[in-house]
Write a protein that binds this DNA or RNA. Structure first.
Length: 401
DNA sequence: TCTGGGGTCCTAGGACCC
DNA sequence: TCTGGGGTCCTAGGACCC
């Protein structure tokens, strides 16, 4: 049966939301109307463009590039810092509106939703009307704009919402694929990134249509599973469901780019332990245990190395994960100055699934109680106020959540 | 020029077992 | 002494997304 899918995409989300928040606070300048970007702190070496206004885009400024480049392209560019708790508020407000149309909504990211409208289009109305209504309501009620893609699967809906921006509704039904999608450069296809683009181009594939008309077997032979996927995408094939049920995380990680390159193992360890505390806190918030610990470093030359190890028993203990992380760091660290350090936990399982042996449980008890007390304080007084690495908090700001 | 942080998924090679 | 092949698990690294 044919499905009815919408993809709702907030236009320049971080920048628009920052603009709306400023106006709400009484500022008169709407930063959507000037050359502006949302960017990280350059002094902390986090100076990349996170979002841009459409005018900034006209200067050739790209998301993800260093702010330094953006300033070269547009010396008068105005830079604003990000605020994720504000973004979450607006993201939730959008979600609440969408919930009035269907409960089958997949929150694909903070600023994108897929909606499965199959069976939810009221009698006498059609999917396109609903899409326009959502577009209009969001603008009127929330003061920012969205693009809405209308199609019969997620891939086509997402491609459609990416057509002309901002504040537009686009359809991409099967019969429209040749005119609306095949004519686009192949790099515009979802999942074709900057590594696979040159490989495709070398094969003579310039447009999405070129890819669609290649033999499927050639793509599979050259790119394996990935080749099959993008070949299907180029032909508008995608049977993946809208995953509307909240999914448990498969891994939790935190990393930080250091304000300068660290070459002292003890100093790196201090940061590592602050990150471990953050990660295990989030783990316990989710009521999950982890069985794999992973430590990652990036050298001053931007080379990335990682080590991971599977533990005998899953755990959520700051001490256990911290000790493993320290061992992994020692194995990794060869004395090269470090630009970034990160910790991840993987192979997560629900707390209830754990069957601790009596011995292990007994050993765990003391540490568990300490973690519980600290978590309680963090929830009561805020994460940044309660941490065993207080001296780091002046230098590093960690995202909550 | 100077390059964030949070994820998911895939691949390849080695260890180990039958 | 010389020899197989398949399956699973583990680790490191990489591509892609927002």
């Amino acid at each position: 049966m044919e499905r009815e899918i919408l993809h709702v995409d907030v236009n320049n989300a971080f920048l628009s939301w920052t603009a709306v928040e400023r106006l709400k606070k009484g500022e008169t300048l709407d930063i959507r109307t000037i050359p502006a970007i949302i960017g990280g702190d350059e002094a902390q070496r986090k100076g990349v463009v996170l979002a841009k206004s459409s005018i900034a885009k006209q200067f050739g400024i790209q998301t993800g590039e260093p702010i330094y480049f953006a300033r070269k392209k547009c010396p008068s560019i105005q830079i604003f810092s990000s605020n994720f708790s504000v973004y979450r508020t607006y993201s939730n407000a959008l979600y609440q509106i969408l919930l009035e149309y269907t409960n089958k909504i997949e929150r694909f990211s903070i600023d994108e939703c897929f909606m499965d409208m199959t069976g939810f289009v009221p009698k006498g109305r059609n999917l396109l009307e609903i899409a326009y209504e959502i577009n209009k309501r969001v603008k009127e009620e929330l003061a920012f704009t969205v693009n809405v893609g209308v199609a019969h699967n997620k891939l086509l809906a997402k491609m459609a919402s990416d057509f002309q921006k901002p504040d537009r509704v686009h359809t991409l039904f099967e019969e429209e694929i040749p005119t609306k999608m095949w004519t686009l450069p192949v790099g515009e296809l979802f999942m074709v990134g900057k590594k696979s683009l040159p490989k495709l181009q070398k094969m003579g594939i310039k447009t999405i249509g070129d890819l669609a008309h290649k033999e499927e077997q050639v793509m599979v032979k050259t790119f394996g599973k990935f080749g099959k996927m993008i070949w299907e995408y180029s032909n508008g094939i995608d049977n993946s469901p809208v995953c509307f049920e909240e999914e448990k995380p498969k891994g939790i990680g935190n990393s930080i780019t250091l304000p300068y390159d660290y070459a002292n193992l003890e100093k790196i360890e201090e940061v590592l332990m602050a990150l471990v505390e953050q990660v295990t806190y989030r783990l316990r918030i989710h009521h999950m245990y982890a069985q794999v610990v992973n430590v990652q470093i990036k050298t001053n030359e931007f080379k990335v190395f990682s080590h991971q190890r599977k533990l005998d028993m899953p755990t959520d203990s700051t001490k256990e994960i911290g000790e493993e992380a320290k061992k992994l760091l020692k194995e990794l660290y060869k004395g090269t100055p470090i630009r970034l350090i990160g910790v991840r936990v993987d192979n997560l399982c629900e707390t209830e699934e754990i069957q601790l042996s009596l011995f292990a449980k007994d050993k765990d008890d003391k540490q568990k109680k300490l973690d519980d007390v600290v978590d309680g304080l963090k929830q009561k007084y805020g994460y940044e106020k309660v941490t065993r690495a207080t001296n780091l908090q002046n230098k590093f700001k960690f995202k909550e959540e």
